[in-house]
């Protein structure tokens, strides 16, 4: 585990760059963290991120398919927002741990 300063705050990250404490998250931190990875977050991105945080807080497993059913974006739209590995990127910026949807 390592600490990293993002947007002026000390954040605990695991070896893959996921937050270990979701309470350290804020919108400013998310914007800065995404910028470091070369991504600019729009309101749409943030809406998806809020949805992910809600889901994870209620203890539900997260899948790409469930985000496609969120009513915020469809799966294609989700890929457009976070190209490449959408679930990985989105959960990273949402300040939650790596999704355990696949076992």
């Amino acid at each position: 585990m390592a600490q990293k300063e993002i947007a002026g705050k000390m954040i605990d990250l695991d070896e893959n760059g996921y937050f270990t404490d979701p309470d350290q998250w804020s919108k400013e931190v998310a914007l800065a963290y995404a910028a470091e990875h070369g991504d600019t977050l729009t309101d749409k991105h943030l809406e998806v991120i809020e949805y992910i945080r809600e889901k994870v807080k209620s203890g539900q497993t997260l899948t790409i398919r469930s985000i496609g059913k969120s009513g915020i974006v469809d799966i294609k739209g989700f890929y457009k927002l976070f190209p490449g590995a959408p679930l990985k990127k989105a959960t990273k910026y949402a300040g939650v741990s790596k999704p355990a949807s696949c076992v």
């Binding site: 899948t63 790409i64 398919r65 949807s101 696949c102 076992v103």
Partner: peptide, 8 residues
């Protein structure tokens, strides 16, 4: 197609 699947 997607996870989860039976007997991965």
């Amino acid at each position: 197609a997607d996870n989860p699947i039976k007997c991965p």
